[in-house]
Write a protein that binds this DNA or RNA. Structure first.
Lengths: 204, 204
DNA sequence: CGCCGGAGACGGTGCGTATCGTCTCGGGCG
DNA sequence: CGCCCGAGACGATACGCACCGTCTCCGGCG
């Protein structure tokens, strides 16, 4: 599965790699993803086009690497490998906290624009999508799953709860509303999601 | 909101319009959305490029019209304006039925490919997204909302239930899993969603 | 005539490939 | 030990190509 036309990774220029990441992220932020071009990235990074084509198969792949590099840096800065969801013993409160934070992030253009671009590309490009899911999406969903697992052991949720599905009960509606702009993204909405998901739509 | 550079719609060629729809849908199905081009559509439809540029602002807009025309035809064929979700009095069963049908549809390439294309485009193009939501998405979500409203009047769900949010508890996770391919789309999954959403993740 | 329609020429832009000449690295030979 | 030389990545740039979106041109029809 390794590249058969193998560029020698050990001789790769770290300088160029970083310059390409910065240029890509900057351009996506400034002119939008649609108008971000390989040639534009190359020019801005002060890099030959071939250097990009040598290491990445597509524009989206560049952005994915750039974005996940950014995420790695941010994670490293915090010191933690992956900040877990807090466990105060109050599942609803913990979920409200993290869902509200997610709302704030999705509303912030700094995250909104590149995330939209990658998501849109992933919707249509299955291969890139797999990469995106494994490297960025899955790890963050895992945090929810872990938190829910802890609650499950304490009997705070159904004993036979399917964790993947449960996670999607929170993230699915939220990202759905965000992606298709079908309604306002507010803290109140986040709180309502937690309430509905935990307690159900049926009367108790 | 009407076109200010107004082509005279009354003199428009219905023949060309249909040919363009058919060509667009066929091409998207055969070569995928990415490789579907305006020039390709024009050639296949036996139509001048200008005829497309005169009536639509973008490739995505053409596909949206083509697809919603298709939906209108299908709806007209059934005779109904919009087939409502059945109301047998058993909310869970009714929802399972329609969610299972949705799963089947999302798995069918005939619907999967163009819907993906439009969704991806909408994620990145707010204007097109609004059109897509109003003309295709919203009407179908309305069916869920109506069915839930009926149940609410009978006290089968919370009296103060927010219908929009409630609908998203079903469609959000489903479309999320479909879009990002984060898990298998099965009838079992649909059933689990209905159970979790109605009864909640907490133990009863 | 006025306007839509088919056809397609046109300049522009970005793609992906193919070479240039340069620079750096590491291995081998004096 | 030091120098040389081949390999390969790099910046730069030229190329052919596909498609874009606009602009004619001409035919047909009201």
């Amino acid at each position: 599965m390794a590249d058969n036309k193998s560029p020698d990774a050990s001789r790769r220029s770290e300088r160029s790699r970083r310059a390409i990441f910065e240029a890509a992220l900057a351009l996506v932020g400034e002119v939008g993803y649609q108008k971000t071009t390989i040639e534009g990235i190359a020019a801005r990074a002060g890099v030959g086009k071939q250097t990009i084509y040598r290491w990445w198969p597509s524009r989206a792949a560049v952005l994915l690497d750039a974005y996940s590099d950014l995420a790695d840096q941010a994670a490293a800065a915090v010191g933690e490998v992956g900040a877990a969801i807090p466990d105060t013993g109050d599942l609803a409160a913990d979920l409200r906290l993290v869902l509200r934070a997610t709302v704030d992030e999705l509303v912030d253009p700094t995250y909104d624009v590149p995330t939209r671009a990658l998501t849109a590309e992933g919707v249509v490009d299955a291969e890139l999508c797999a990469q995106y899911v494994e490297r960025l999406l899955r790890p963050s969903l895992k945090l929810y799953a872990d938190r829910l697992a802890a609650s499950r052991e304490r009997g705070e949720v159904r004993a036979d709860l399917d964790l993947e599905t449960a996670v999607e009960m929170f993230t699915g509606p939220l990202s759905g509303r965000w992606l298709m702009r079908t309604g306002p993204l507010t803290h109140a909405y986040a709180d309502r999601l937690v309430d509905y998901a935990l307690n159900g739509l049926a009367p108790r």
